[in-house]
Amino acid sequence: MLHIRHLTKCYGTVEANHDITVSFKPGQVVGLLGHNGAGKSTLLGQLVGAVRPTSGTVHFAGSDLVADPALARRACSIMGQSAAPMRGVTPRNAVTSMARLRGRTKRAATAITDDLLATLELGGWADTTGERLSGGIRRLTAYAMACAGAGPVILLDEPTNDVDPMRRPILWEHTAGLARKGHLVIVVTHNLAEAQPRLDRVVILRAGRVVGDDPRPRPREAPEGALRLTLFGADSGLKTPFPSATPVPREDGSLLVTFSTSDGPQALDWAARCQARGLVTDFSITPAASLSTLEDLYAELHEN
């Protein structure tokens, strides 16, 4: 078990996180969600011994990880936000080196590397040096580097960034497999729609505080026959033909309008005309019940 108690980190007068108390058990994929600056990466840094908490404790299997950062580094392996060092190094070389540095024998490290490269379908790039690889392949290699010979806790900071849509499910499936083997996997992600089916639990941070902690968020009950129209590239003052539906600006710059199914044809027609006139760049209509953004999750937790 990983127990975090009253963890706080201040940089001068700025609080990166505040009084975080949460426990994690092995064998789970935990989604750590929150807006930019919510303190997610700081928390991962505190777990892996790179950030010294201002106060509070982190205990893993009875050992104090704050007092012993070397133990923290052996217990947790991390795939950070920043690039893994890949220049001049091939994925095979990088992954093998990580397994060796985590104490594996040469033979075991080679087997681990072959296995990870095959599973993540990286075989075609295994012997290409980092500077010639695409961002997505480098990101997948960084993921393999974090997993190679990893200890009980694996921390992933936005692992699917830059990864092509074909390989993302492979990565998520692998992550779920790590949890089945008994690892605790903590994943920072903004891509909730993609991560949701694979998460065993969601912890939400806002302004450095835990504001939500829920086992596997289920899609909430849909309002009877509701649809959602998402408009991309729209001006926030755009007037809709539905008097009851106020457009809600979203984190990604899009506008959201919720309306009843009976208004569907009218909404589709209106959105298509907006696009034709250049008022929106793109739009989508989905059932309002689908849980795809952080706002939905906030709303879900708030309602609960």
Binding site: S63, D115, G182
Partner: peptide, 15 residues
């Protein structure tokens, strides 16, 4: 996945 068959990481063992 094949890496679930090979012991690519150490979950259950102590640190």
């Amino acid at each position: 996945p094949s890496s679930m068959r090979t012991d690519t990481s150490r979950a259950a063992q102590p640190v």
